[in-house]
């Protein structure tokens, strides 16, 4: 059962994802589907940091925010800049990766709980900066955020419907899935797993732990930053409240729910955590209660997450 699920699951999921918006009853549902893709991107980014490399990051949403605001800076009337979409996204990838290294470097010697606290602080600092950097010079627009952001456009084709955004996000998601899998099976992926299991032993084996950890932070951050840019282009506005601690927790919940280190799991986690509150919308006040109950039930029934990651050895044993 699990064997078949892992073999055909990705194709089935891709097929469902491709036709889902065509079957959606209304535009609101298409919007929810687009949001699922965006959060799946975030979950995949965090999965690299927490799932692959075992670095507990509680401030991950900061990179999402940095991506959003960089997009707003470079493609809105705020600074009067209207750079092409592709150029903005390229800048975002590097800015976010840079900020990933910036938060990674001072925390290299920290593990587990201690790393979690520092990254939590980084998330909060980013939020506070976004709220307060409207004085003395107005950079972030403060609590009012930044408005009238440019939509994505490719060679004159401007994206402005939810369904178009959905396919743009889905395409990005597909690419990030491939990237995640490539990274997981690469030399650096092995280094991450070794660090996750035992950092000292990994170092004694000759793993460059410093470089590997920085790479995990940088890759995770650039994926989150990219997702942030997509969010800004979709909402056409950004506000500090899009990037609260609650969001970091939600993304972490997606990764854990899906199974730490599992690429497909992170996506399923995003599907569950974004869609469940929508499904239970009719229960009004009780919807968060129902949501919480389901999370607890899943963790009791499947403590390793919905999909425990596939072991590299099994892959290699199968091919023999």
């Amino acid at each position: 059962m699990t064997e078949r699920l892992t073999r055909y699951g990705p194709f089935l999921l891709a097929l469902i994802a491709l036709v889902a918006p065509l079957l959606a009853p209304n535009d609101y549902v298409i919007g929810v589907l687009a949001r699922i893709c965006l959060y799946a991107l975030l979950a995949l980014g965090l999965n690299i940091v927490v799932g692959f490399a075992g670095l507990l990051d509680l401030g991950f949403v900061a990179f999402f925010g940095i991506g959003s605001y960089v997009y707003a800076f470079l493609a809105s009337p705020h600074f009067g800049l209207h750079l092409p979409f592709a150029a903005v996204m390229l800048v975002i990838i590097f800015t976010a990766a840079g900020s990933g290294v910036l938060i990674g470097a001072p925390t290299l010697r920290l593990r587990g709980d201690y790393l979690a606290i520092v990254t939590l602080g980084f998330g909060e600092i980013t939020y506070i900066c976004l709220v307060n950097l409207d004085r003395p010079v107005n950079i972030t627009g403060g609590p009012n955020g930044l408005l009238s952001i440019d939509p994505p456009s490719f060679l004159g084709f401007v994206i402005d419907h939810n369904i178009e955004y959905y396919y743009l996000f889905l395409l990005t998601l597909g690419l990030v899935v491939l990237l995640s899998r490539r990274l997981r099976d690469s030399r650096i992926g092995w280094a991450w797993r070794a660090i996750r299991e035992d950092e000292i032993a990994a170092e004694a084996m000759g793993v460059n732990t410093t470089m590997a950890k920085l790479q995990a932070f940088a890759v995770g951050a650039s994926i989150a930053g990219f997702a942030g840019g997509l969010l800004a282009s979709w909402q056409r506005s950004v506000f500090p409240d899009n990037f609260l601690l609650q969001e970091s927790i939600n993304i972490l919940a997606m990764v854990i729910l899906g199974g730490l280190g599992s690429v497909l799991g992170a996506i399923l986690g995003a599907v569950a955590i974004v869609s469940l509150p929508e499904i239970f919308r009719d229960f009004a006040l009780y919807r968060l209660l129902a949501f919480g109950l389901i999370l607890i039930l899943v963790m009791i029934l499947r403590p390793q997450g919905l999909l425990a990651p596939r072991s590299g050895a099994r892959r290699s044993a199968e091919t023999k």
């Binding site: 797993r193 070794a194 299991e197 035992d198 004694a204 000759g206 072991s311 590299g312 044993a317």
Partner: peptide, 22 residues
């Protein structure tokens, strides 16, 4: 290393493969 420090959640084969990391 002291206390062995094998990679506990990896298989025997994966542990050996990691030994060849350098």
């Amino acid at each position: 290393p002291e206390g062995r420090r094998i990679f506990g959640r990896m298989t025997v084969w994966e542990n050996l493969a990691l030994g060849a990391h350098v």
